[in-house]
């Protein structure tokens, strides 16, 4: 799974850095869980300002999960997608 987090000023200021923290901690948790798919890999990438926030106020923070665009993203929302893809069965 590839997650791209927009790291433009607005996104970073309004929550993107929290989402990054959430995901990095989740990545550590996943490494310790034994019900994670063997082939699951989590790639987190910071990308430069996408620029969408300039046209639409309701954008930042912006995250892409496997190229699905998620405006006004939150940590729990993105983490849930990761868990859904990564975990075989609830512990």
């Amino acid at each position: 799974m590839k997650i791209k987090i927009c790291s433009g000023s607005k996104c970073a200021f309004y929550g993107a850095s929290h989402i990054l923290e959430n995901l990095e901690e989740l990545k550590e948790s996943l490494a310790e869980m034994d019900n994670v798919r063997k082939d699951f890999k989590l790639d987190i990438e910071l990308i430069p300002c996408v620029g969408d926030c300039k046209e639409n106020e309701k954008t930042a923070p912006l995250v892409f999960v496997d190229d699905e665009r998620i405006p006004l993203a939150t940590g729990p929302q993105v983490m849930e997608r990761v868990i859904r893809a990564a975990v075989i069965k609830k512990p």
Binding site: G8, S9, A12, P48
Partner: peptide, 14 residues
């Protein structure tokens, strides 16, 4: 300061 950057639409990384 970051609030000021955003108010002015300044994107430091660019």
């Amino acid at each position: 300061l970051m609030g000021m950057f955003i108010a002015r639409g300044i994107e430091p990384s660019e």
